[in-house]
Simulated assay, not measured.
Amino acid sequence: MSQGVQFNRLMLEMRSMQMEAMARAKPEAVAEAAETPKFSDMLGQAIGKVHETQQAAGQMATAFEMGQGGVDLTEVMIASQKASISFQAATQVRNKLVQAYQDIMQMPV
């Protein structure tokens, strides 16, 4: 069988799966719209996750410094970098929110 025929068959299968998924997603989309979380809740959860990540990294670093077994330096460094990146992302989101607020406040009424 040629590659073109295999590709066409694969594309047809993907399209049929897409149609099935879309058919199933429509009733769920209505339910999701009714249960859409609030922005403040989502932001609070994100900040909570950043805090948890930082706490876990701090605990791992302390455990490594105290010489507890089972704590590897590479794991400590990875946890530290994850905490740093999550904090930087949260800071960028905050900066964008402040900028959006300032833009809205400067709009003429």
Rank of each mutant, 00 (worst) to 15 (best):
Q54I: 01
S16F: 03
V71C: 00
I85C: 00
G44K: 13
N95M: 10
Q59R: 04
A21W: 03
M60K: 02
K82S: 02
A33W: 00
Q99T: 11
Y101L: 11
K82A: 08
N95H: 05
S80R: 10
M19W: 04
A29G: 07
I78H: 00
A29W: 11
F39M: 13
S80V: 02
M107S: 06
M107V: 10
K96L: 15
N95R: 15
V98L: 10
M77N: 08
P37S: 09
S2H: 07
E20Q: 11
M17Q: 14
Q6S: 05
L12H: 11
S16L: 12
V5D: 15
E35F: 11
M19Q: 11
K82Y: 03
G4A: 14
A56N: 02
E35K: 15
K49P: 00
Q106H: 13
A57E: 04
T91E: 12
K82T: 10
L43K: 10
M19E: 13
E52I: 02
V98K: 13
N8Y: 03
R9H: 08
A79M: 01
K38F: 10
P108Q: 13
F7E: 12
E28R: 08
A29Q: 14
T62L: 05
S86Y: 03
A83V: 06
V71A: 00
G67P: 02
L10G: 14
I104L: 15
M17P: 02
K49T: 04
V71Y: 01
Q55K: 09
S16W: 06
R94M: 13
R24P: 06
M11K: 15
M1V: 05
V98T: 08
M1G: 13
A57I: 06
Q102T: 05
A34I: 09
F39I: 05
Q99K: 10
K38Y: 04
Q3E: 15
T74F: 04
M66W: 03
P37L: 03
E32L: 15
K96H: 14
A90N: 10
T53I: 03
Q102D: 13
V98P: 02
A29K: 15
G67V: 06
K82D: 15
Q55Y: 09
K82I: 07
Q81P: 00
Q68R: 02
M107L: 13
D103C: 03
I47F: 12
A23Q: 08
Q106I: 09
F39L: 11
V71H: 00
G58F: 05
A57Y: 03
L73A: 04
G4V: 05
E28A: 09
E65I: 02
A56M: 04
H51F: 04
M1Q: 01
R24V: 08
Q6L: 11
D103K: 10
T53D: 07
L12M: 12
A79K: 01
I104R: 12
M17E: 12
N95Q: 13
Q102V: 09
Q92E: 09
M107I: 06
Q6D: 14
Q18Y: 04
V98E: 14
M105T: 09
T74S: 07
A25T: 03
L43M: 10
Q45A: 09
Q18T: 06
